[in-house]
Design a protein around this nucleic acid. Structure first.
Lengths: 156, 156
DNA sequence: ATTGAAATGGAGCGGTT
DNA sequence: AACCGCTCCATTTCAAT
């Protein structure tokens, strides 16, 4: 396993390019070029370097789950009966598509997950029939997000 | 305020298009067209409709904060001395760029935030000098994410 | 709702400063 | 590093089905 721990220096122009594309991945390179006053080829070259450095890890269309009827987001703290069971439990959690994030955390729980459901009933069903039936999971604590007030990436 | 609560029906072709662009927002439309066997113009039109429906809420370059030296992610549960102070507290939290998410939650806390810091020292500094000095915040509980094992959007 | 064709403009490369 | 000029290809629109 290669450890990539190196940090990288980016200048103001890199930041402008990245900020632009972090807000709209399909913005044309040439449009950015005109705005910041350098050539398209220069941006092209900078993007190549930023990709090589690992700073850019891809691009995504963002979809709004509300429109598909997913309106209930929750965080669930999970207690494992033995911490060593973590890898198996995570493997099972991966099989539940509603689980969007899974963190191995310090503190009370072994695992903290973020989950997105259609409604409270759906959440309850997942808790009772999928999550709590995973071997090794002894107990859970659920926190429903009534409203997400901030959602962003790191700022440059 | 317009309430957009309507759900939308998408067919298998929409799903293929979206799945493709959710993994790589800059994949050429024509490449997708060739793969699934319809014309570029058809995809173009479908994307227009999906945007109008609100299902697509944009596209983003994803940057890897590790490369900038941000290696410590944590969740912080926040107790407010009066729940009514939520709007002010959130306003202040927005001013802290390291705060990536902020949720108004049921359960013990009023607020749950996700925060990304360079290291533990940076986290401690933010807790002591920024977060806990926000008026209305009485107490916090911090959970460090030692490892994020799942990170994804909803599946189509 | 999809198609093909046409116009416009962007992507990406090589040579140059 | 950046620029220019070039070729190739994608995007987008439109009339037609």
């Amino acid at each position: 396993m290669k450890i990539v721990n190196e940090t990288v220096n980016i200048d103001g122009i890199d930041k402008e390019i990245l900020r632009s594309l972090m807000n709209d991945a399909r913005r044309p390179i040439l449009e950015i070029a005109r705005k910041i006053g350098i050539s398209g080829a220069a941006i092209h070259q900078r993007l190549r370097k930023l990709e090589e450095s690992g700073l850019i890890s891809g691009s995504r269309f963002i979809i709004n789950p509300r429109i598909l009827g997913y309106t209930t987001m929750a965080f669930i703290g999970i207690y494992l009966d033995k911490a060593i069971r973590n890898p198996e439990a995570v493997k099972q959690l991966k099989e539940i598509p509603e689980v969007l994030e899974c963190h191995y955390t310090t503190g009370n729980w072994s695992i903290l997950i973020k989950i997105l459901c259609k409604d409270n009933e759906h959440l309850m069903e997942l808790l009772n029939h999928k999550i709590q039936s995973i071997e090794g999971i002894s107990r859970t604590e659920t926190f429903i997000s009534l409203h997400q007030q901030i959602e962003r990436q790191i700022q440059l």
